[in-house]
Design a protein around this nucleic acid. Structure first.
Lengths: 334, 334
DNA sequence: CAAACTTATACAAAACATTGACAAAAAATT
DNA sequence: AATTTTTTGTCAATGTTTTGTATAAGTTTG
């Protein structure tokens, strides 16, 4: 959440002073005498500071209050300053420092997978404990730390698979899945804002056919599609063929993704898929995925639908289709 | 996200000034000096603004009142501005300023109602056109302009009622409701962050009994409860009694709210309510509301549940129960 | 035509910059 | 221990920039 974007927010000296606790005059003196900060200037000459500068001054202030002489520490790096404070204050107000450390700690690509693994354990524990707040909090941190792509590939996708398995063994109840869906649904807001959808994005509908009550797979599909540059309308689970087809019509979608995660012995799902295919026609690409999709292989091949095989496959398909449809759009315009 | 849709541009500078709290002259100055907004012009040269512009100016006003210099923030995106305001709020002795801002820049309740009315029309049009993006955008702007409370009371609540009615007449299809639910679900993230839940908030589960597929009412209840200081776990629609009761147990919730918006002739709902009541016992307060709740008046009185009568009633009950449970908590601690 | 909008220019208060000075505290030297 | 020197926070004087507001003269709108 506390994403420090160097370009986005810049502050004048008054604000910096308020936030860092160092008086304006002193900020200037520290700059003049020891180059403690290097603010850029406006056309008129006013100093303009970044979030990092504020963090720096905050730490410098704390260090000087602890007895360090400003001339000696003014030019230290942010990390060195954090180290300094950490050693000095073992017990007291560490929240602010903890936050500062968090904002600047950048994960190397190497340990991303391990980080995701750790989050995975924490998140699953939160699901098991039915702690929605903890789950949301872990997700938020993970998105910041891993980035949207890695978040989905290394955390969300495996986690949902795990939940699906544990649900079958009876370790988790349906409510666990409902609660998780609810949390993930509200997360889509963050993910969407991290990756704003391009202007000419192709449209997609994501849902679940009637009888399929599990929406985690569909949610994952929707999030992935948005990250691959689609403009997704997510409808939730358990919708009859006519409704899904109506949504496709209304939005002029060029693709429809259905998630099937539960194998039923009746042939309702097969019937629904046939009806949907008939209603949307051949112009709209129908994609079917999910844990139990292969159980209905017969129908899928019958109506000519590729069965999605895992994360990478879906991603590839999404990107390929997106470029394809964008190209077609261009031709139509010209 | 921040698609400036020229079609929706419609306000002249006088209206913009009133709604945003920024004087007309200043609006023009901010545009001239810093390109804070880019209104379209009429044939004659008059500026025409969008809802987004209003939201933008409102945020800019708040930020400058918080000490940010207009030249530094004028070109930030809407999201960055929201972020900025959010970061400022937890800072310590700013209450006085925040209050001043509230009292000076907030539209009166009369104006608010009218503003909400305008948004209501736009939002309903977006629902009818099945335009999820437009709907979300309108909601976001409305939250900035009206504040969370008024947003719910004057916009969300009437809108959902309207949707329910139109659904019955056949003007809207079930998909419309699903799409709307989806948008509102992702909105809960904003609303939750606007009103962070207090540390000792009593817990509540919100859901819909089996057979009740409409979740709009439940969503509204969940959002309202969160704004009244509850820590809500939202489970979505159509859950069997055992699952709901399990969620209550897991979370140690002291209240359970069920929404019933569709009157069925079978007695499944009545049965489910009886079972739920039995499972959760008398320690947990059961609240039942929704358009069709009165249809089941018999069961409700039988198990001793108050039937919610409208927005104000529910709000009162929520606040009263919250203080009650917090008091009980205190006694248990001492 | 009147009300509201436009541009352009002007103006003053608040905030910022620079320079230089000053005194208390800390450190070094005698 | 006493004295000198350095460090460091604060302040004052003076000029510039930023920013909200105001005025004047012309144009658009209903």
């Amino acid at each position: 959440m506390t994403v420090t974007n160097d370009d986005s927010a810049q502050y004048l000296i008054r604000t910096v002073s308020k936030r860092s606790g160092v008086k304006s005059d002193l900020v200037r003196a520290w700059e003049r005498r020891y180059q403690a900060v290097n603010p850029v200037r406006t056309a008129g000459g006013h100093r303009v500071y970044t979030d990092q500068d504020i963090a720096r001054l905050k730490l410098l202030n704390e260090a000087t209050n602890n007895g360090h002489s400003i001339s000696q520490i003014a030019q230290l790096s942010l990390d060195d300053l954090k180290q300094l404070i950490k050693e000095e204050l073992p017990a007291s107000n560490q929240e602010s420092i903890a936050e500062l450390v968090k904002t600047t700690s950048t994960a190397g690509t190497k340990d991303r997978y391990e980080i995701a693994q750790a989050y995975n354990d924490k998140c699953y524990a939160a699901v098991l404990a039915f702690d929605a707040q903890a789950l949301e909090s872990h997700f938020e941190n993970a998105i910041v730390e891993l980035g949207s792509e890695a978040f989905i590939e290394f955390l969300l996708s495996p986690l949902l698979t795990k939940i699906g398995e544990r649900w079958k063994t009876g370790e988790l109840r349906p409510v666990h899945e409902h609660m998780t869906s609810s949390v993930i649904r509200s997360l889509t807001y963050i993910l969407r804002n991290n990756n704003p959808c391009p202007p000419n994005a192709p449209r997609m509908i994501v849902s679940t056919p009637i009888g399929q009550l599990h929406e985690l797979g569909a949610l994952l599909a929707a999030i992935m599609a948005e990250l691959c540059g689609w403009q997704v309308t997510y409808l939730g689970a358990n919708l009859p063929a006519e409704e899904i087809a109506a949504a496709v019509r209304y939005t002029n979608a060029c693709a429809l993704t259905l998630s099937i995660s539960f194998a039923t012995e009746d042939n309702i799902v097969a019937k629904e898929i046939r009806r949907i295919k008939k209603l949307i026609g051949n112009e709209v690409t129908l994609i079917v995925g999910g844990r139990a999709a292969s159980h209905f292989q017969g129908v899928l091949t019958e109506v000519g639908v590729a069965n999605i095989q895992g994360y990478a496959h879906f991603r590839e398909l999404l990107k390929q289709l997106a470029t394809e449809y964008r190209a077609r759009e261009k031709i139509l315009i010209n």
